[in-house]
């Protein structure tokens, strides 16, 4: 592990700044890409597109205590796009929920790090996911539980396009606009590429912002680059700027980001990373992390 990364992770509860977050995310990409190559299974495209988002949540935003993962007042996070599991596990491990090196056992027989997030097996996972289109409903239930109990925690749910294809998500979007629970925030990792092709080819969600607004959600007007941590921190400021609920934040991201052959390519949604592509990709990711490290 990089020395600088070890140094930052020695105090993971410190609120990291945009440069530190960018560096962490770059290091996490190196780890994810390596794990996916080692294990020959898992989802690179959507894990890479969302790594700045999850890193920023866990190292700047969420009110959590990894030593007490079931703390009742904690903020909740539901990764509705559960196939980005290697992303979540890398971030959770780095944040201190379990040893980061365990991520190398991702998807092994007998490993607690299941193919998709499993809340009964993995510390820090607030809801098991994998079947797309469940997360917004579950998060709505969690946010309503906060209302029932008078607790002040926030509930974040992250979807990709796949979840937004599912009818159940739109049921949940309708219901959330009815109940308007405080602290419910939908984060959309909008990389515009699905498993079989681009979102435009498979099922066009545009105009997505208009759809969400018409469904009664408070949606960001300013565009945010979800692979840019400065933009993500700006989006967090937007989330805190008013008391209108529920909120949805659309982030433009790049599927398979930072590895040239996988950027924007549906073919790297869940393909195993072979040796040849690994050698090319890891060099690019090393260079990206070196660059971010130099900026610290």
């Amino acid at each position: 592990m990089r020395e600088k990364l070890m140094e930052l992770l020695s105090d993971p509860s410190r609120k990291m700044n945009a440069k530190e977050l960018a560096y962490l995310a770059a290091c996490f990409r190196e780890i994810m890409f390596t794990v996916l190559h080692e294990r020959q299974t898992g989802h690179w495209g959507g894990s890479s597109s969302a790594i700045e988002l999850t890193t920023s949540l866990y190292f700047n935003r969420l009110n959590i205590d990894p030593k007490n993962p079931k703390w009742e007042d904690r903020d909740r996070f539901v990764l509705s796009k559960g196939h980005a599991s290697v992303n979540l596990y890398t971030v959770l491990g780095a944040r201190g929920y379990f040893p980061l090196e365990d991520v190398h056992h991702f998807r092994e027989l007998g490993s607690y790090l299941q193919g998709h997030p499993a809340m009964l097996k993995i510390p820090g996972v607030d809801m098991s996911t994998g079947a797309l289109g469940h997360g917004v409903s579950v998060a709505l239930g969690m946010a309503e539980a906060a209302r029932q109990s008078g607790k002040k925690y926030k509930t974040y749910v992250m979807t990709g396009e796949g979840c937004l294809d599912e009818g159940s998500t739109w049921e949940a979007l309708l219901a959330a606009a009815k109940y308007k629970p405080e602290g419910l925030i939908l984060m959309i990792d909008y990389n515009k590429v699905q498993l079989d092709g681009t979102e435009g080819q498979i099922l066009d969600l545009e105009p997505l912002r208009d759809k969400l607004v018409s469904f009664g959600w408070h949606v960001n007007e300013e565009k945010y680059d979800g692979n840019n941590t400065e933009d993500i921190l700006k989006s967090f400021e937007w989330m805190d700027s008013d008391d209108v609920w529920p909120k949805a934040c659309i982030y433009d991201t790049i599927k398979g980001a930072r590895v040239d052959f996988s950027e924007g390519k549906n073919t790297w949604h869940g393909a195993a990373i072979d040796d040849e592509h690994y050698e090319i990709g890891i060099k690019q990711l090393n260079a990206d992390a070196d660059k971010k490290e130099a900026l610290l």
């Binding site: 809801m127 579950v138 239930g141 219901a175 009815k178």
Partner: peptide, 18 residues
């Protein structure tokens, strides 16, 4: 929650985790 049985069950699961 209206005629939306998928969301009905998902919401209940979210409440149950809390």
């Amino acid at each position: 929650v209206g005629v939306a049985e998928g969301n009905l069950a998902g919401m209940a699961a979210g409440l149950a985790t809390c």
